[in-house]
Write a protein that binds this DNA or RNA. Sequence first.
DNA 1: GCTCCACGGGAAGGATAGGCTT
DNA 2: AAGCCTATCCTTCCCGTGGAGC
Length: 341
Amino acid sequence: MITDARVLRTGFVPREVEHRDAEVTHLTEILAPLIDGDPADTTLLLGPSGVGKTCLAKYTAEQLRQEVLDVEYQYVNCWQNFSEFRTLYRVLDGLGKTVDIHRQSTPRDELYERLRQYDGPPCVVILDEADQLEDESVLYHLHEMPQFSMLLIANRERELLAGADERLTSRLRGSERVHFDRYSADQLVSIMDARVKWGLEEGVVSDDQLATIADAAGGDARVALSILRTAARQAHQNYESEITDEVLESAMPRARAERHEKDVDTLTPHQRTLYQIIEEHDEISPNDLYEEYKERTDDPKTDRTVRNYLSKMDQYDVIEAAGTSRDRTYRSVSETFDRIE
DNA sequence: GCTCCACGGGAAGGATAGGCTT
DNA sequence: AAGCCTATCCTTCCCGTGGAGC
């Protein structure tokens, strides 16, 4: 059933990156100065989750290293290494400069000093989820060191710069930027298809099933692969030779619930108010909803705008719109889950 | 068949970010 | 560094459509 579990993992970097030609080219150009030993500009990789930012950063850095032997790269996930110390430590660790560093006692200045003295090949530092950093002065200091070229990954520029001071903001304003959009369902299918060929035996999963997964994933490749992986593992445990629709069905709710939480997080204040009202009522008519929304909001948007919000929230499965015309109601999604299960 | 309500497409105006020129 | 230009997104206004209820 599963021939290579690695390729289904989310951190896996494929040999070829699909549907991201423009972004790959752009990033390769940005990093090109490194080939001649010159520093590259600090670069922001921006876009929603699961659209290939991390994958592409690693891929491009790796390509560069194969092409030019004299380049290093170091990946740090700032969500896990949120403190200044841990971030610096991770970078130094990757360069093999941490032999005699004892966690507690080493002052940060010492870490910075070591980085400053680093005179090896130029190094690309990939800071994933850079908006999660506790203290963003790391960015400032690394930015100052020509040996290090930074790739900063974040969902939105605003969040990344939220905690930054004037100095840092003005430095980063001039950075290169690469924007990423969500994948279409077709693109997700072809991404999964490529991994299925490497990771699973033939005929384990059908094209229809991949399309089903793609629909449920909402443009997020991470979610799509997580569903696929969960389903494959479950089928394997059941000693089945292929992923049945039942197994697939059971693999989806978990991923969907995760996505729901993530989507609610991304709502604007106005959308969140609407969401809360719907949650409180379980089910509410458009007119009542709008009236209540107007009461709760200082400067309410027009009804037309609210309809835009609602239809978007419906598309992303944050809420559910039921019925047409005059018997339209809006419902909370969790409520319908409860009723089904 | 008429009215009411809600939906959603399209155009226009506004804000914003990024790129480009000077 | 400042200003201009452009692409894009958001919001609003206007309006046609269509189902539900009378």
